[in-house]
């Protein structure tokens, strides 16, 4: 399944002030893959995603989408180029309706032609967004808001979907829905980079999972390692 790389990160360094948060990070996500990125709090996972979408500047290194460097581009340009981030904490627009939130997803879409068809499968995947179309998004439950956030990112028709801890604070049944959806999303041809704290589930789901501590990638795990709890814990402790 290791297809043509869609997203490549090379020797990436990101600093906050003088403190490095991400160090010489390299990772590759192939077309149609689900790649995991796990690590303890403060490891630099969110920072990595933020650097990819242009929210924080990289000190050095390179980030390429389909072979072309996107380093230093504005977030809106990167979004329009085909990378959607579902940010930590969902960040839906609470005062707008569910439908308006989805319409905002369309902004990054470059070809408007297939929007309706895409909307169809997305609503099938997350029926709540159809059901509560006219509701104020802020009145949805946490799990529903997370589904809306993912749906909103998908409406843009991205090549790559980045998710930052989508299962955070969700009830187990909703976690199942979210993880289940990722497989469907991959089948639609969307490449996924998943940042998670639920290490075991992520390792089991993803084609490859990078373990990050202290700003650096320490190890790469495969689904075969999913039941090897000791190895995962050891990777976490490697800082």
């Amino acid at each position: 399944m290791n297809a043509q790389p869609v997203l490549e990160v090379d020797d990436l360094w990101v600093h906050y002030g003088t403190v490095p948060a991400v160090r010489k990070l390299g990772l590759t996500v192939g077309g149609g893959e689900i790649v995991g990125l796990i690590g303890p709090n403060g490891a630099g996972k969110s920072t990595t995603l933020h650097a990819i979408v242009g929210l924080v500047p990289a000190r050095s290194g390179d980030i390429r989408l389909r072979g072309a460097s996107i380093l230093g581009r504005k977030p809106e340009t990167i979004a329009r180029a085909g990378i959607s981030l579902v940010p930590e904490g969902r960040r839906i627009f609470a005062q707008l309706t569910v439908e308006e939130n989805l319409r905002l997803g369309l902004v990054a879409r470059t070809g408007h032609n297939d929007a309706d068809r895409d909307l169809g499968w997305i609503e099938e995947l997350f029926p709540v967004v159809r059901e509560f179309r006219a509701r104020q998004a802020g009145t949805l439950s946490g799990g529903q808001q997370q589904q809306l956030a993912i749906a909103r990112a998908l409406v843009a028709g991205p090549d790559v979907l980045l998710l930052d801890e989508p299962s955070l604070g969700l009830a187990p049944t909703i976690v199942d829905v979210v993880f289940g959806a990722l497989t469907d999303i991959r089948e639609r041809g969307v490449t996924v980079l998943l940042v998670e704290q639920r290490a075991q589930r992520t390792v089991a789901l993803a084609d490859r999972t990078y373990v990050m501590t202290n700003g650096e990638i320490r190890m790469t795990l495969t689904p075969a390692d999913a039941d090897d709890t000791e190895r995962i814990i050891a990777a976490y402790m490697a800082s």
Partner: peptide, 23 residues
């Protein structure tokens, strides 16, 4: 659409930009 984008931007500019709203 531009009106919706303006409203979104004034609620949370960062997230709006992540969705492709041009600052």
């Amino acid at each position: 659409s531009i009106g919706l984008q303006m409203r979104a931007a004034s609620m949370d500019f960062r997230t709006a930009r992540l969705l492709g709203v041009k600052a």
